[in-house]
Design a protein around this nucleic acid. Structure first.
Length: 627
DNA sequence: GTTGAACTCGCCCTCTGCTGGTCGGAT
DNA sequence: AATCCGACCAGCAGAGGGCGAGTTCAAC
């Protein structure tokens, strides 16, 4: 395994190899990197034409680079360095200790290069201590398990992903039967993932340790992944997963043709009998096919190689890019037959038709009659039953049942709310009740509340005080004698408009029937309720009865309250379908027949009938119900 | 490996109900 | 003169509809 950096930096790792003579120039790695820019293509080429042909297409400089690398590899054979990559327990993840071994040779052009050997220490994670690029040494240990994972953590402050951008592997493709030096494939670490396969049949120049490995195992398949560590650890995690599942019989040799390869692949699977299962090291994902596994692993990366040339937005797949471009071009091939709507995908059209036309709602609530077009809507709805509020406001105790409500709520902590209430106002905001001045509307409102129930308007001519300015205005006229309201019929003048209105009704309105309040004991009539009350205390009758225009026994205000309450109850009953609209409409205009109202309202109806009784028509009630 | 369908997530919108403040008319 | 009450408005929250776009999966 080789690591190569760019921009003159090199981080060169070699599988199970060490050397005292290293003559690898950074620019050679740059060329390797160029090859790696199209790893999939390279992979395809190799799979199609074989490793040797792929090599033959390389430029002379690339060949030179490879020869150099080969020389390096040859040389390192002379001085083997101990390395350990010893998987043990099945499906167990190991953390390797990285130790550094410095080169002593003066010939090493990469002066900062150091050598890393890896020793397994289960559960222990040791960081690289010294800065600068180095060699990563891996040696496969006793092959005991079906799946083995090795995670190597390297502090990001020492080696950024950019510095380790290029990672060159041996055969990377599933079931690729060639894993010779010549079939090296480049995979960018920026892609975060790649496969390395070590297997039987290494060529002469293959690394010694690889030979050891091959001797012990006929096939080793590693999945190598890099990712940024979390914010706290600030490190790069290199995960090497040994995907070798079981020893295979009748395995084809490296020199077989493509047709043979496909056949052999089938044979392998057939021979194996059991299906391979690929487990994602990052999440719980498993896949039975390598292609699915690879595709899934891309979801853990930010790799989006497909660029929209119109807005420079990038996408993971060609399909996504194509859909996106359709948005630019307005190309919406899926048109609704029932309206003029059109969509990019067929799924959107189906959903649209369910919402607008077919009203098919496959997702039904088990607790009520609610049904929805989409599962997410049902999930959201169920929270209204469970009371679950998983979205907590970070600034107050409010929690919402969905993300949008929380977002909308957050506006009360800023945006609309803040601008209206808490924004600084250059103009002075004066208190309407005193001389206080504020520059924030919220502060003004809070201050003005302190004036509530305060008789802040005080007469300068007497001790009179009141709460409202309009009352003070009327009072002042008692001192000034001003009477601005004149009766158009008799020219009599009044200080208040309402006094003029009362005068007009009493003396100039022929239809006006004055309210008479009668004492329930003696029947004496009064024009004001307060006079009846005062009289009844002397008369000993207790409660006086209102006889407003002879239509009721309660005061108008009390009757209104009763009717309002009853109307509310009836309306609720009507909403529960206990009274149809048709039934209700037939009541209109009729004298109050309580028995015609919904049975559920019987109690309320009876009370109203008792307390309000005659003079109340259904129309009056219905107007209250449906106004 | 590609592709399309199904699935999923997230955003924005409307409708509705509740609450508090203000104002003017009624009592 | 004092108080009550309804209309109106603004702000907020609950519930649900509609759709854009990303992800997963299986067939080819």
């Amino acid at each position: 395994m080789e690591w190569a950096g760019h921009s003159g930096h090199a981080f060169h790792g070699q599988v199970i190899v060490a050397a005292t003579e290293i003559s690898v120039l950074s620019e050679q790695f740059t060329k390797i990197k160029e090859l790696e820019l199209m790893p999939e293509k390279g992979l395809k080429e190799e799979e199609k034409d074989g490793a040797r042909r792929e090599k033959d297409h390389r430029s002379p400089s690339e060949l030179e680079a490879e020869r150099t690398s080969g020389a390096f590899q040859d040389s390192v054979l002379e001085e083997e360095v101990e390395l350990v990559l010893a998987p043990s327990e099945e499906s167990e993840k190991h953390i390797l200790t990285l130790q550094t071994v410095h080169f002593t040779s003066e010939a090493v052009e990469l002066q900062d290069m150091s050598l890393l050997s890896i020793q397994q220490q289960e559960g222990v994670q040791v960081m690289v201590q010294q800065p600068g690029p180095g060699l990563l040494w891996l040696e496969e240990g006793p092959r005991q398990s079906l799946q083995q994972y090795v995670a190597i953590s390297i502090q990001q402050e020492l080696y950024s992903l950019q510095e380790m951008e290029v990672l060159q592997f041996h055969a990377l493709e599933e079931n690729v039967m060639v894993a010779s030096e010549d079939s090296k494939l480049a995979v960018s670490l920026a892609e975060s993932a790649g496969l390395i396969k070590l297997q039987e049949g290494q060529e002469k120049n293959q690394l010694l340790a690889e030979r050891r490995l091959a001797e012990r195992t006929k096939e080793q398949l590693f999945f190598v992944e890099t990712m940024s560590g979390d914010e706290r650890s600030d490190e790069i995690v290199l995960t090497i997963s040994n995907l070798n599942v079981e020893e295979q019989e009748d395995q084809p040799t490296a020199g077989q043709a493509d047709a043979e390869k496909a056949k052999s692949t089938k044979n392998q699977r057939k021979t194996k009998g059991a299906k391979r299962t690929f487990h994602c090291d990052v999440c719980m994902f498993t896949a039975s096919r390598m292609s699915s596994f690879n595709r899934h692993m891309k979801t853990h990366t930010n790799e989006k190689p497909h660029l929209c040339h119109l807005c420079l937005k990038t996408f993971r797949t060609v399909t996504l890019l194509r859909n996106h471009v359709n948005i630019h071009t307005g190309n919406r091939p899926y048109k609704c037959n029932d309206c003029n709507m059109a969509f990019v995908t067929s799924g959107e059209l189906v959903r649209h038709r369910r919402y607008k036309h077919t009203h098919e709602k496959p997702f039904k609530c088990s607790m009520c009659k609610y049904a929805s077009v989409e599962a997410s809507k049902l999930k959201r709805h169920v929270r209204s039953h469970t009371g679950e509020r998983p979205f907590q406001c970070c600034q107050c105790s409010y929690a919402s049942r969905d993300t949008y409500k929380l977002k909308r709520h957050m506006r009360t902590h800023s945006g609309v709310h803040m601008r209206n209430l808490h924004a600084y106002s250059a103009t002075e905001l004066k208190c309407r009740y005193c001389s206080a001045v504020f520059h924030e509307r919220y502060a003004l409102m809070q201050h003005q509340k302190t004036h509530k129930n305060e008789k802040r308007f005080k007469c300068e001519h007497c001790s009179y005080a009141c709460k409202q300015e309009r009352h003070m205005t009327a009072h002042i006229r008692t001192h000034t004698g001003e009477k601005p309201f004149t009766c158009l019929s008799c020219n009599k003048c009044f200080r208040q408009k309402q006094l003029l209105n009362a005068h007009f009704r009493k003396y100039h309105d022929a239809n006006f029937i004055p309210t008479v309040y009668k004492c329930s004991k003696c029947g004496k009539g009064f024009s004001r309720w307060s006079n009846v009350h005062r009289h009844s205390e002397k008369c000993g009758s207790g409660e006086a009865k209102s006889a407003t225009s002879g239509k009721g026994r309660r005061t108008g205000k009390r009757k209104q309250t009763i009717l309002k309450e009853a109307a509310k109850g009836w309306k609720e009953a009507a909403n529960r379908d206990e009274a149809t609209a048709e039934e209700v409409s037939t009541m209109k205009g009729e004298q109050f027949p309580g028995e015609m109202f919904p049975v559920a309202c019987g109690e309320t109806t009876a009370r109203v009938k008792e307390e309000v009784d005659e003079g109340v028509t259904c129309e009056m009630l219905l107007n209250m119900m449906y106004k």
